[in-house]
């Protein structure tokens, strides 16, 4: 009796805390949604209203009419999809190698990998710009996708997840004569599905929100991606607050959908236990 009561209390406290944080985090977001239906001057009212008095869709209309939102949306989507699939493959492959093999220079190479994440972008911005021109990557989607396709972050993340894959499983496959690539593909990869699902969301998001590479590589407006176009909406002599918030809201949808689609995978857990026993 005592036990169940304390468990109920625990549950109430847990929910209370989770909801408190949820509300604090959602407030700016919900308010932003409300602002997308307002005039600029209503956004700055002393008594901001959550439900707009005279809601209108002008910000959304402007997004499509003045800013060709749909075109840039498709550009971003194409780049993000190609990036995500390639990155999942290359990052899990390298993460597998770092987690499950011992080879000369491994620690050194791993430090180099980590080191690559530590280089501040603006240190190498100028040389990168020169490089993009010299390699003829200007105005090509390959130029946007290739440089970051095997990013260190994903490899590091996959390595940490691959650590949990039991070595005995791999060894027994080797005894059966499986090639190393097959071991990675058929045994290790299915076991880290939750991590792959998380990385898919992160990789998609990273590409979707990437600002620098599209900016450096893509010159023609036709090819340009959403974040770059959105950055242009709020600048020195022009501040389309309502429009940029509408754009921001719509541009979260693909990641949100991906998140929803993959979230069962997040919880799939390692099936290692079952295999082991």
């Amino acid at each position: 009796m005592d036990d169940t009561l304390s468990r109920r209390a625990q549950r109430t406290i847990a929910y209370g805390f989770l909801f408190f944080i949820l509300i604090s985090m959602a407030t700016p977001f919900v308010w932003m949604i409300s602002n997308t239906f307002k005039e600029q001057s209503q956004i700055f009212e002393r008594q901001p209203t959550l439900i707009p008095e005279e809601p209108h869709l002008r910000n959304y209309v402007s997004l499509f009419v003045d800013f060709d939102f749909h075109k840039h949306f498709l550009n971003s989507a194409f780049i993000a999809v190609v990036h995500t699939f390639s990155h999942l493959f290359l990052a899990s492959l390298a993460g597998f190698a770092f987690a499950k093999y011992n080879f000369p220079l491994k620690n050194f190479l791993f430090l180099v990998l980590l080191g690559s994440m530590m280089v501040p972008l603006y240190t190498i911005f100028i040389p990168l710009f020169v490089l993009v021109i010299r390699l003829g990557l200007v105005n090509s989607y390959a130029g946007v996708i290739i440089p970051g396709v095997a990013g260190a972050f994903g490899i590091f993340f996959m390595k940490q997840s691959m650590e949990a894959v039991p070595g005995e499983l791999l060894d027994s496959a080797r005894i059966d004569g499986a090639s190393e690539f097959r071991i990675y593909w058929q045994i290790a990869l299915p076991l880290v599905r939750p991590a792959l699902a998380v990385l898919a969301v992160l990789a998609f998001m990273g590409s979707w929100n990437d600002f620098v590479w599209p900016l450096v590589v893509l010159r023609s407006r036709e090819l340009q991606t959403l974040p770059v176009v959105m950055a242009g909406m709020v600048s020195l002599y022009r501040m389309e607050y309502g429009v940029v918030m509408a754009a921001s809201l719509l541009s979260t949808l693909p990641i949100l959908l991906l998140f929803l689609a993959l979230q069962k995978q997040f919880l799939a857990g390692l099936t290692v236990g079952a295999v082991k026993s």
């Binding site: 100028i126 900016l215 450096v216 407006r221 950055a231 600048s235 020195l236």
Partner: peptide, 21 residues
């Protein structure tokens, strides 16, 4: 070619350093 305000001039510096672009 329309480039956001903050970045246009970074790109211009890049082009001057590169000698092309």
């Amino acid at each position: 070619e329309e480039i956001p305000y903050g970045q246009l001039y970074d790109n211009l510096t890049g082009a001057f350093v590169a000698g092309v672009g």
